[in-house]
Amino acid sequence: MKLHINGDVIELEQQMSTVEELLTHLGLQEKPLIIEHNQSILKKEDHSSREIQDGDQFEIVHFVGGG
């Protein structure tokens, strides 16, 4: 499936059905991330129920402390 993540087109061999599956696939499931899915901000508790489809857009940001 094809997804737009942070402006890049990402091709995935497997089909993913939820945000949680996608995060696990990307190795990001444990990280504190703010995720926007098709212009709507997700709460953490929504990750397992939010379904994803081919062509969906994601913006993913994580907080850092350095400065």
Partner: peptide, 20 residues
């Protein structure tokens, strides 16, 4: 908005976080 970027990866993210 919350702005994030990665200059090396040529990425720029804008998130409307008002709902949080």
């Amino acid at each position: 908005q919350l702005i994030g970027f990665d200059l090396w990866k040529n990425e720029r993210m804008e998130l409307s976080v008002a709902s949080l």
